[in-house]
C-alpha cells in the first residue's frame, strides 16, 4: 500500500505518474486513458497494452486507483472497465502535479533568457 503524508509523497515512476495525472479529470477506460496520456504529453508518451495494464495493475494494488463498474452496457466482447483515482491516489496525483509545477517554476526562474530551443 502506498504511504502518504500530509506534507509530501514519494515521486511516482513515469508511467504511473502519467496515468495518475490523466485520471485527475475523472474516470476513464483503458483506451481512453491511453489517448488522454498521449494528448497530455503532446503525443510524446504512447503506452502499449502491456505497459498500460501492468501499470494499472500496480496502481490498483497500491490503492491509488480503483476499478469502477461498467458505465455502458455492452456485450461481453466489448466490455470496458473504468478506472478512477482513490482518495489517496488523488492526493498523490496532486502532489505529483505540484512537484512538476515547482520544478518548472524553479528551472524557468534560473534560466537566463527566454525559452528557445
Amino acid at each position: 500500500m502506498y504511504q502518504t503524508s500530509s506534507v509530501t509523497t514519494k515521486p511516482l515512476p513515469a508511467a504511473s505518474m502519467h496515468i495518475a495525472l490523466a485520471l485527475l479529470d475523472g474516470e476513464l477506460h483503458g483506451y481512453a486513458l491511453m489517448g488522454r496520456v498521449a494528448e497530455l504529453s503532446d503525443g510524446a508518451v504512447r503506452m502499449g497494452p502491456g505497459t498500460l495494464y501492468g501499470t494499472l495493475n500496480r496502481l490498483v494494488a497500491d490503492g491509488l486507483i480503483e476499478e469502477t463498474t461498467d458505465r455502458i452496457s455492452r456485450d461481453d466482447s466489448e466490455r470496458r472497465r473504468y478506472y478512477q483515482l482513490t482518495s489517496t491516489g488523488r492526493l498523490v496525483a496532486v502532489d505529483e502535479l505540484r512537484r512538476l509545477q515547482a520544478l518548472v517554476h524553479k528551472i524557468a526562474r534560473h534560466l537566463p533568457g527566454p525559452l528557445t530551443a
Partner: peptide, 19 residues
C-alpha cells in the same frame, strides 16, 4: 505474460490493440 495477469487483463489488452 503470467497466467494470472493474462486472465485479468488479456481481453482488455486485445480490445485496446483492436482500437
Amino acid at each position: 505474460y503470467p497466467e494470472k495477469f493474462r486472465e485479468e487483463y488479456g481481453p482488455d489488452m486485445v480490445l485496446l490493440l483492436t482500437h
